[in-house]
Design a binder for these strands. Structure first.
Length: 472
DNA sequence: TTTTGAGTTGTTCGA
DNA sequence: GTCGAACAACTCAAA
């Protein structure tokens, strides 16, 4: 029998349109499908993320007649041992361009090279590999629109079908090792009231992704209008699939090609994902550091009261209905509508004066679709610390946003049952309305939005002044 | 080098 | 209720 090759699955958990897998299969040898449980990645992950991954891997393995091999340990060591075990001399994987993955992949390739094993990285989770697009001066773009203008001119490769593969199966750890390994390193702000039970899983795996594509065909042409309303089923809900690679954006661009504002706006959201990956590629420190250094001077609350406010935010007990509905949607479903992500993030930074990193960490802890580049840069955008930062006086009013985007209170009452007896627009108001109309069991507002808006403006102005003085 | 036009997603105030 | 201006002034990218 010809010596097998190893295919190392990471965030490309699909068989169709997986160029790295196609390249491995093209050798015409048996393929060992491998997933490595890496504690570096799993220990700081919440159970939401881990259970989603575990279920997706189960689905992937089922699609290979149960052949998936799961091993736990350092990638270099696992790959070396497995290669020795089966007599493989080459390993294939999809390229990873995010911080840890990039360092790991370089190290793994070097380590394998010393023992005569060839490591092949093919393609990336993106249509355009991060680091590819440059401005005319050769620098990476720092604003989205300029990036998109170039991105739009590049050709998107056509998707390819799943290859025919002869899977070679071996002894494997049970998939439960994934959720068993997760959640060991908790965020510093974690309090006893914050739950770490995973939300119920949506349908996972490659087939489930394609069902979402089919269903979205009937809605995408209205996407430009409906995408902002969290109470309307206007979005594709494909984000977890893009995160774990059960579908590739190439496949989506092909599936949704066509004229119209709905499609155009939806593809531009895919382009945002590509842009943020590009920013991360060039500025890996942006994961936890402000892209605008002058914002390091912003006064942030970190005392006991701040922790209590953070807890109220995370549990959906701020007394601001749209904020609370969004945070409870995250708790209960492992996903949050994008409009509400912006509103809740803005509230944390601008009304509670907390650190965007706390919020970003909590989102990553609970989201099924938590993607380092998109999550951290989305937070930086809202916090006013990003490269293309919003002007700091642009502060979302949680009540106005509710009135604009959830006018009938469908979303708010879905996730905040205390408000169910209260009609819109009262149910959109802080505390669920005034006086006798306010539901007695709903949280009183933790802060006064108007007061804290002014405080935020003061702090941002102060940060700029201090930064200016420090420069001069 | 200098200039010019543009920059996801908003809110408030006053006419 | 509606509309435009102000918010505060900076950075980016190309010409």
């Amino acid at each position: 029998m010809a010596s097998p090759v190893i295919f190392w699955f990471r965030r490309d958990l699909r068989l169709a349109d997986n160029p790295a897998l196609t390249a491995a299969a093209a050798l015409g040898r048996p393929v060992v499908p491998l997933f490595i449980v890496d504690d570096h990645l799993l220990a700081p992950s919440g159970l939401a993320r881990a259970t989603y991954l575990e279920a997706t891997l189960r689905s992937l393995s089922d699609s290979m007649d149960g052949a998936l091999v799961v091993r736990r340990g350092s990638p270099s060591e696992v790959l070396r041992e497995l290669a020795k075990e089966v007599g493989a001399d080459s390993v294939f994987a999809t390229g990873d361009t995010a911080n840890y993955g990039r360092r790991r992949d370089t190290q793994v390739a070097d380590d394998l090279d010393t023992v005569g094993i060839a490591m092949h990285y093919v393609s990336t989770p993106y249509i355009v590999a991060p680091g590819t697009i440059r401005s005319k001066t050769g620098d990476p773009f720092k604003v989205f629109t300029a990036f998109r203008r170039v991105w739009d001119t590049l050709e998107c490769e056509a998707p390819v079908d799943a290859p025919t593969v002869s899977w070679l199966t071996l002894e494997s750890e049970p998939l439960t090792v994934i959720s068993d390994s997760a959640g060991k390193v908790r965020p510093a702000f974690f309090t006893n009231r914050l739950p770490d039970t995973p939300p119920p899983l949506p349908p996972v795996g490659e087939a489930a992704a394609w069902e979402l594509v089919t269903s979205f065909h009937s809605r995408i042409d209205r996407y430009d209008d409906t995408r902002n309303e969290p109470g309307v089923d206007g979005t594709s809900a494909l984000s977890p699939h893009l995160r774990w690679g059960t579908i590739h954006p190439r496949q989506l661009v092909a599936a949704f090609a066509g004229p119209g504002d709905g499609r155009r706006v939806w593809i531009s959201e895919v382009t945002w994902r590509e842009f943020y990956a590009d920013v991360l590629f060039h500025q890996p420190h942006s994961v936890w550091e402000n892209l605008q250094p002058q914002m390091n001077y912003l006064q942030i609350d970190r005392d006991a009261r701040a922790v209590a406010r953070f807890e109220a935010w995370a549990l959906g007990e701020t007394g601001y209905p749209l904020v609370d509905a969004g945070m409870r949607q995250l708790l209960e479903t492992g996903w949050m509508h994008n409009r509400v992500r912006m509103v809740t993030a803005s509230f944390l930074v601008k009304h509670l004066h907390l650190d965007w990193r706390w919020g970003a960490r909590w989102f990553m802890w609970r989201l099924f679709d938590g993607d380092l580049a998109s999550n951290q840069h989305g937070w930086q955008w809202t916090a006013g610390t990003g490269t293309d930062a919003a002007p700091y006086h642009r502060i979302f009013n949680p009540t106005t946003q509710a009135e604009r985007f959830d006018p009938h209170g469908n979303f708010v009452t879905k996730y905040v049952p205390e408000l169910r007896g209260v009609a819109a627009p009262q149910c959109l108001q802080p505390g669920g309305g005034d006086g006798l109309l306010a539901p007695p069991n709903y949280a009183k507002p933790v802060v006064d939005a108007k007061t804290e808006r002014e405080e935020a403006l003061r702090r941002f102005a102060e940060a700029r002044e201090v930064a200016k003085a420090a420069r001069g």
